[in-house]
Design a protein around this nucleic acid. Sequence first.
RNA 1: GAGGGUGUAGCUCAGCUGGUAGAGCGGGGGACUGUGGAUCCCCAUGUCGCGGGUUCGAGUCCCGUCACCCUCCCCA
Length: 405
Amino acid sequence: MSQEFQAPRGFHDIFGEDLKKFRHVSDTVRKILKSYNFEEIILPVVEFADLFERSIGEATDIVQKEMFVFEDKKGRRLALRPEGTAGAVRAYIQNRLFAERPYHRIFYEGPMFRHERPQAGRYRQFHQIGAEIFGADQPVADAEIIKISDEIVKALNVKARIEINSLGCKVCRPAYREALVGFLSGVSEKLCDVCKDRKERNPLRVLDCKVETCKEAVKEAPRTTDYLCEECERHYSEVKRLLDSLGVSYVENPHLVRGLDYYTRTVFEVVSEELGSAVIAGGRYDHLVEEFGGPSAPALGFAVGVERLALLVEVPKEEEPVYFLIPFGDVIPYALKVAEVLRAKGKTVELSLRKGNLRKQLDFANRRGFKYVVIVGEDEMKEGVITLKDMETGEQVRIRAEEVE
RNA sequence: GAGGGUGUAGCUCAGCUGGUAGAGCGGGGGACUGUGGAUCCCCAUGUCGCGGGUUCGAGUCCCGUCACCCUCCCCA
């Protein structure tokens, strides 16, 4: 067999066991979100490129080198979405959801695209489930979002720790940034080459660097939390107090900054030690809706990395039994009738297309792991019955299809 | 985008310093046309990722390319 085509780098077919894990993650997350009454919205995969450029930030890596950008026939710059929040904000404004009621909880699920080098748990097309709350400035909303993340990893039985931080707001962030830049120029020689560059472009990210010398250099750096204005401080304390009362365990990471420009105040990540990366992450973005021409609507949200979680989960085995129907001899029309009767009773029935004698058929059924086999031969047809065999016990009975329980 | 590794049958992998393809598992057929998990026999596993070069001769050496894995950058 010579093969002409393969999927492009970073694009994957998801099937078999992987798909079972994928669905398990997705179903679990959706169930939890629905229990909080989040409403689903299906968002387009393509948006105008500048939607992402202006929300995520021109200087970020996602925008600078990871976006799939292309032109339509009229020369407009479109992009495959690299994340979901920007599109959700656009939809919130465009559909005037803010006019319906003071706040909104929505969620969406689907593929995201980033043009980067694939690695374990990282693909060019990957899937996220994102949830957003629009029109809420209360700390309880932050606590709720983080609590949901905690519920998700617990429900999936995944080991992960929650890290939180506060980045401050329009009022306190500039002062902090200035202090940080000042500090960084002082330790400039100790920083790695990447960080020397980052210091100018995106100074907050230096705090996040994994190079040992940088970690060391940055130990005494000013912390975002030391520069919070009174309101941000109060907000952050309240979020923590609520998390404590909910029994959600977390660690404060003053160096957690996140890579997207739109974040304000609370940011958080749910980090898997095993993967060494975040499986859920999010935060507050209080000005984005307004910046995009909507009303003043403080908002927050998070995104769940479905593939990353799928790498970490075990799928519970509780599949419904499948009836494997073996027609034997010249009985196809009768066999089809039998299948119809069983399906009408809610059973899952697979008609065997395997050729060969009964022994082969049973051998095949055994290897496929079917719980039940239904044998329909000429004898059965004559009497209007079926032979139902339990493959685990080996017991079998001759009954009418209508009598199957 | 940078660095390293890998690519041989459906899967897991052998194949020594160049001499024209192997094993196990899996698959198909049979022993055995109405009763599975066992055993035995037989069969096919294939453009050795793809393209070029060196050579009398390339799975093996060289170059390019594509994909995957790992590290970095960054992120879910």
